[in-house]
């Protein structure tokens, strides 16, 4: 059974499946029940599962996460929605000081299978705090798992895998891709939850990215191919832990790596990959690992986002620099 679905619909169907499969799964967040979420990712679920399982909460991110922790102690598997990336910080303490550390503090006697869904990233022309990419804060925090699906197929399966995880999962949804359609096979068993994946094979340069950046990397690879350069593209899928095996294998083949992300580059996921690849594949590298990132500034006013966010041209500029070594 293969359908053509948007990413938003694919995640919606994944949530529906998880709610149907396990009575302990709850959805909670602002505007998620009656409205179906500001991006409509939870549309229709309250009418199917009721207000005791799809729960509109008061407007308080710390409490959404903090009460989800208590619900998990009671045996529930809460899925929290944070409405926008930039609104996660009122909940930051409960995520990093409590949720991330409670399994450790309990020395294993309790589990915290909580998923925190976060629509993130730019390209939608929105006001301040609505286009950010805060994933590095959470990838830096021991005790959390961090993932980001790039396609409807991954959206459908990865949300279910995240809910089944016995650990807290930060689930970053590339909101600019919500309305892009793709094929979703709802019968084929998924691959490993936190594996990175080669999504285009090539021989001369490796590009790595996650979320909305993956489509930009594929676009850059198409342009490069037309100009005679063969590029391999890897969809990271998981930001913590990072599955390095496909990345190292690719770099051993191509000798060149460009890492791209919407987030600022300083102390970022891209920095971590650059440093790890330098440690593990130093003798395979023909050029330094290069990063293409959002600038180390606040996300700018929307009219400037096209300059701020890496596009295919900036990716190819880095590819050219890598090839020039």
């Amino acid at each position: 059974m293969t359908d053509t679905l948007t990413l938003a619909k694919a995640i919606n169907l994944g949530l529906q499946k998880a709610l149907a499969d396990d009575q302990k799964v709850l959805l909670m967040g602002e505007d998620i029940a009656t409205l179906g979420g500001v991006f409509r990712v939870t549309e229709g679920l309250v009418s199917e599962f009721g207000r005791n399982r799809v729960i509109d909460t008061p407007l308080a991110e710390s409490a959404i996460v903090g009460t989800a922790i208590g619900l998990a102690m009671r045996g529930y598997r809460p899925v929290c929605e944070i409405q926008f990336d930039g609104f996660i910080f009122p909940g930051f303490d409960q995520i990093t000081s409590q949720l991330a550390k409670l399994t450790y503090r309990h020395e294993g006697s309790a589990r915290f299978p909580i998923v925190i869904r976060v629509p993130y990233g730019g390209h939608i022309g929105a006001v301040e705090h609505h286009q950010e990419s805060p994933e590095a804060y959470f990838a830096h925090t021991p005790g959390l798992r961090v993932v980001s699906p790039a396609t409807p197929q991954d959206g459908y399966w990865m949300i279910q895998q995240a809910i089944q995880s016995n650990d807290p999962v930060m689930f970053f949804e590339p909101k600019s891709r919500y309305w892009q359609k793709g094929e979703v096979d709802r019968e084929t068993p998924p691959g490993a939850f936190q594996a990175s994946r080669v999504v285009r094979t090539g021989t001369e340069v490796t590009l790595v990215g996650h979320g909305a950046m993956v489509s930009v990397l594929l676009q850059a690879a198409d342009i490069a191919a037309a100009e005679g350069t063969s590029i391999e593209v890897i969809d990271l899928r998981s930001l913590s832990p990072i599955d390095y095996a496909p990345i190292i294998a690719s770099v051993q083949k191509t000798g060149r790596l460009v890492v791209a992300q919407e987030a600022p580059g300083h102390a970022s996921v891209g920095s971590e990959i650059a440093s790890t690849v330098a440690e593990r594949a130093f003798y395979s590298l023909e050029a330094p690992v290069l990063r293409v990132s959002g600038f180390d500034t606040p996300f700018p006013p929307a009219k400037l986002e096209g300059i701020y966010l890496p596009d295919a041209d900036r990716i190819l500029e880095a590819v050219d620099r890598a090839l020039a070594y």
Partner: peptide, 26 residues
Amino acid sequence: VIGSQSLHATGYAMGIALDKLNGNAS
């Protein structure tokens, strides 16, 4: 971390209430 447990307590109490509302399924 001062006061953090208040939310865990409230969440736990929400769970007790939901167990009642959701009946035997819980």
